[in-house]
Amino acid sequence: MSVLLEARNLEKSYRLGRGRVLHAVSGVSLQVRKGEALALVGESGCGKSTLGRTLIGLTQPTSGKVLFDGQEISGLSDRAMRPWRARMQMVFQDSSAAFNPRRTVGESLAEPLRIHRRHGVRERVAELLDQVGLSQSVAGRFPHEFSGGQRQRLNIARALALGPELLVADEPVSALDVSVQAQIVNLFGDLRASLGVACIFISHDLSVVRQMADRIAVMYLGSIVEEGNGLNVLDRPAHPYTKALLDAVPRPDRALPPPLQGDVPSPVNPPSGCRFHTRCPIAQPRCATERPVLQPSGEGRQVACHYPL
């Protein structure tokens, strides 16, 4: 499959005043092929949401490039970006904040179609509702009349309105109850199969990610520490951080191993060398001074660790 989206050495930093700089994303390179689902996982503050927004052009990178279908889209003006927006869309976590409460959902679904001057708006809205498993008759209702799960379906329908080739979904199921979460996870699977749309899922929930993604990129303090086939990465993690994340997930079937100590260090003042060395159970002296780079380690996997597992 050909490459749809590519990031080259992406950096995003924010000036905080008094000379302090927060490096939200540092040196990230990745590719998403057509129709593929990539998951960005990591703890809060690891830069996964910032990376998602930068990839889709909602935030401009400080340096580095984003290419969509082979053409650079980073640095484009809002006007120049407009035709590209139809090809990539975002699905946000909080579906109740994503809709105008005073408009019917039909009007909200029609809005992107009108802005992009598409024809057959009414038919398209009906088709979208059908694709996300809602009855066409709900178009005249208001957002508050829907449950959380139904609103997330509407949220997805709106993102699909212009027929995008890429969806970026930031925690699309984490606000939902388990039984509803399973419905939305299945819906994404169905949509990928029927529409061939590529997806980037941003999530902290490893079991959800395992179900939804073909590939997984694990982030820690702004950088990717491990990346590869989803099942391989989660079943046989190579980076100690990936393993620690997996070990910390409470499971019904086995006791938790001793947890990782401490908190994620501040991205304003990240540790030297390998950024994970302050919490790593197998850190060596070398890890405090020399920063490991992302290197291939077989099975199409890449790991940034001096001593991979």
Binding site: S179, A182, R210
Partner: peptide, 14 residues
């Protein structure tokens, strides 16, 4: 309905 963290990955979640 909880997606499994190991073992085979189901085609669809119940």
């Amino acid at each position: 309905a909880i997606p499994p963290l190991d073992g085979p990955r189901p085609e669809r979640l119940p």
